[in-house]
Simulated assay, not measured.
Amino acid sequence: MELRHLRYLVAAAENGSFSGAARRLHVAQSAISEQLSDLEQEIGVQLFTRSSRKTSLTPAGELFLAEARQILADADHAVETARRAQRGEIGSLSIGFFAGSVGVNFPRLIRSFRKQHPGVRLSMVEMTSTRQWQALVTGEIDVGFTRRVEPEFRTDLISEILHQDPIVAIVPKGHPVAPGPVDLRDLASEPFVLSSRDTSPAVFDKVIELCSEAGFSPRIASISSVWSSVAVMVQAGEGIALLPLNQQQSRTRDLAFCPLLAKDAFVDFVMTWSPQHDSDLNRSFRLLAKTHSTGPGMRPY
């Protein structure tokens, strides 16, 4: 049984004859007659009472007609659903992010996408960069907002730079280098509080690189997994820190956020996805994300 059998049956029932169904569907009358006879033979039920003047449904045919109409309606709905999904109007999308760098544009992006795609189920999951890369590879999330992707994931993921976050020196207010700008060589003798490489390898490596370029290796007093903990340790006098500027927390009263003189004191903030799990909906979201970026441009890795 095929959908055309059901369409022929509905047309014949509504037009009261095979000839009327043929005119309506723009096919030969013989095709209508043959296909409906094949349908009756296949299901083992007589659906029509045939005469030279009129074709009418049997009682079994009347019941079958109602089911046929529902099946055709369901099929049309399935087609429209697929087309809407292809246009990015419906579906689901899971977004990974970390709060330390998304900034004010991220909430605006989410609100804008929800407004433009009200039929999409959008979920957001806060994750470290490392966890996002793993989740993207497995398809747990669809798009990630992360730091530069580590080499081991670059064969599986694609990234585009959205903007570059400046690295600043975080020191207690009243520190001799505040308010900056700071020459890193003036911090060579300070104890450092670092962000863990396990959670943010790009930031950890950049700090080590900047210190090396300034001619010293940082004396590590403590390592923490999150930005807020690093700030607390600096407040407590454990040391100073080098971290990307966090706009949400840069107004902490007893800390100074000092720009660095080093010209490459920044880390990339990227949008990342897996080509193995890509979709039209995913592409629609990424296109909108680009329009909400305030960075100097984007380029693929």
Rank of each mutant, 00 (worst) to 15 (best):
R253S: 12
L243G: 03
F257V: 09
G96V: 13
S222A: 14
E140S: 13
G295Q: 13
S189H: 10
R83T: 11
P166L: 13
A241C: 11
G16M: 06
A13R: 15
I95G: 04
D142C: 06
F216L: 04
P201M: 12
V10N: 12
L255K: 07
I141A: 11
A68W: 06
A13L: 12
Q116G: 15
P201I: 11
V234M: 05
F64I: 01
T146V: 08
G237Q: 11
H175Y: 07
F192Q: 09
S30W: 00
T272I: 02
L3A: 14
D165R: 13
Q29I: 09
A99S: 15
H175Q: 03
I32L: 07
M233S: 04
G103T: 07
D76H: 01
G295E: 13
H175K: 02
E140I: 01
V177I: 14
D254N: 14
S195C: 09
F216C: 09
K290G: 08
R219G: 04
G180A: 02
N246H: 05
S123Y: 01
L63G: 11
E213G: 06
Q116P: 09
N246D: 15
D156P: 04
G61Q: 06
K54A: 12
G96H: 01
M127G: 06
F192E: 03
I167Y: 05
